[in-house]
Design a protein around this nucleic acid. Sequence first.
DNA 1: TTGACAATAGACCGACCGGTCTATAGAATT
DNA 2: AATTCTATAGACCGGTCGGTCTATTGTCAA
Lengths: 176, 176
Amino acid sequence: MSTNSTNTPTADPTPTRDRLIAAMRDALQRKGFHGVGLSELLANANAPKGVLYHHFPGGKTELAVVTINTIVVQLTAGLQHINKKATNPLQALAVWMGAAQKSLSDSGYEKGCPLATIALESTPDDTAIREALAAGFVAIRSQLAVTLEQAGIEAGKSRQLAALIVSAYEGALVQA
Amino acid sequence: MSTNSTNTPTADPTPTRDRLIAAMRDALQRKGFHGVGLSELLANANAPKGVLYHHFPGGKTELAVVTINTIVVQLTAGLQHINKKATNPLQALAVWMGAAQKSLSDSGYEKGCPLATIALESTPDDTAIREALAAGFVAIRSQLAVTLEQAGIEAGKSRQLAALIVSAYEGALVQA
DNA sequence: TTGACAATAGACCGACCGGTCTATAGAATT
DNA sequence: AATTCTATAGACCGGTCGGTCTATTGTCAA
């Protein structure tokens, strides 16, 4: 496990594992956590049952948690990218969100935000999922606030505004 | 059926039917449509299986549609009430939304908006549910716009603002 | 009283759920 | 070549899903 001939040294992407995560993300966007069956999920990922249990001993729930974390990482990375490159962060932000909305309408409004659905579906018992979501939303909001601050908005205002932007965005998805 | 000795003339409330609707609303708020089983639903409503099928031949889905419509009617009625009575519509609106948020936090953030969850869960195949939801959101937004107009806001602005308010509200629920 | 019909009650069913388990294939190490 | 460990593969299982079907009860009209 330590050395690795054909791949990057420390992390092995394991395509099958990634396919499972991708399938779960798609499922969360379209139907929600309870809406998809394992068989459908595995069919979409072209994977047999054993492989899910192998990569995610915690089963469906663990896959969902990992998927949530993956999404959050990608989202915050996208925001960081805006921070570094754009000369006009606000405009870049608008473009970014516009792109997100376009991908939504391109799917015929089938695919929304995968976080929103599972957030509403989850109960207080689903502690692992709830924790992942809570941490995720905090990360997204704070990263967004950083972007706003870089655009010259005062710190306190930035956090408020970031929360509002995320809220309005998720809310719009609900109604679409 | 035409005459009716003990109840109001035209409509019979049929308590059992109402209990089913109430149970479905609660279920939608807490877990979403796919998250609840019929057995759990019926247990909460203290009703056997046959009675669900009797009142709602379309089964779980029809119950959900009727529940959605019921919620929308109650919501718009609440807004109309504000319209007629309040001297300051905007302030009354704020109070009203504050009350909604309080009931949310009182439930330990278990219960959100029942419309939001099922909206995100539903797929394009669930035509009945989608139609009910679409009509419902339109009704809520337009009723809210009327209230805003009465508060002196120009018509076009009112509709935009109404959409934003609803969006922000739903979005906040997602994150709570 | 009797007949008709709405409402209640729950046994019952096939399908599918998420999950476990055993068997095989493949790559790396020795 | 033998061994070891990871990854793939799918048969299999008990439980629950949503839904149907057959009584039974209650309530009017005749």
